[in-house]
């Protein structure tokens, strides 16, 4: 009985893993195909001759170097800025006493129920009135605060006892000192987790950069992938080749920090 259960468990897990890995495999495989092979029926799983040239061609097809710089800037500033505001807010909600704290927290919590798509138009109108369309400002500004991050960090900060806060106060630490020298180092794993989630989220963001930029110089990598889709159809081989080098940095980040990501998500009891 035990053996059967074990076999069943492994079969299900293996199937799950295969389903997860399939799109990535398909992406890699397609990126090395010739144009006809990409649309051939029955599908070609492994191309007869690996077309490494696709990568060179894809990289030349659009100013990917520029896109890469844009993506790095937007991801970096968004992540650091969002982390900074979230840490401050989470500290206030966790350790400080102020009038209306719980009500304010509930209101913020309520904003998590508003779907992101609903915010696109009001945000776009606001930013275009600020003449920020086609600038880094438009790409960065709306993402400098995230209540999901605040909430996750608050949960972690709450797990640090108030006694530790009082001890630091008595030791002569200001709130600022306590926050950066005690609380943040103590919450290292959650902070790493939300940072990685944010980096991945920012790096992969598509809809918002697409809407607020039409100048080629301001595009980010995911938007840049559109270069392979024209009215005449999509060049799948080149698209997949470009997709591969777009996601590589994220794969590297994830592989190195997966321990923290998993810990962080299971701590907060929420999905990322």
């Amino acid at each position: 009985m035990k053996k059967v259960a074990s076999i069943l468990r492994y079969t299900i897990l293996t199937l799950g893993a295969l389903i997860m890995i399939l799109p990535f495999f398909w992406m890699l495989s397609t990126s090395l195909k010739t144009q006809p092979e990409t649309v051939q029926i029955p599908p070609v799983w492994i191309p007869k001759q690996l077309q490494w040239g696709n990568y060179v061609e894809a990289f030349k097809a659009a100013p990917f170097a520029r896109y890469f710089v844009n993506s790095v800037i937007v991801t970096g500033v968004t992540t650091i800025g969002q982390l900074f505001t979230s840490i401050l807010a989470a500290f206030a909600f966790s350790k400080l006493r102020f009038w209306g704290k719980n009500i304010l927290f509930l209101i913020f919590l309520g904003t998590m129920m508003i779907p992101g798509e609903m915010l696109i138009i009001p945000n776009f109108v606001t930013l275009s009135n600020m003449h920020l369309v086609n600038t880094y400002g438009a790409l960065i500004l709306p993402w400098l605060a995230s209540f999901f991050t605040v909430f996750t960090l608050r949960q972690t900060f709450n797990s640090v006892s108030d006694q530790t806060y009082f001890a630091a106060k008595i030791d002569g630490a200001s709130d600022w000192r306590f926050l950066w020298h005690i609380l943040v180092p103590m919450s290292k794993s959650t902070i790493t987790a939300v940072t990685v989630l944010q980096v991945i989220g920012s790096w992969n963001a598509f809809m918002w950069p697409l809407i607020v930029t039409n100048d080629e110089n301001m595009r980010t990598l995911p938007v840049g992938l559109q270069a392979f889709t024209t009215d005449a159809g999509t060049n799948f081989a080149l698209l997949m080749a470009a997709s591969t080098f777009v996601i590589i940095p994220m794969v590297v980040v994830y592989i190195f920090l997966q321990k923290y990501i998993i810990a962080g998500i299971s701590n907060s009891g929420l999905k990322g």
Binding site: T164, A167, A168, I170, M186
Partner: peptide, 14 residues
């Protein structure tokens, strides 16, 4: 200028 020891010691774990 008080010194205080808490029930859970409140040491800085890091």
């Amino acid at each position: 200028k008080v010194g205080m020891v808490f029930q859970n010691y409140a040491l800085y774990p890091h």
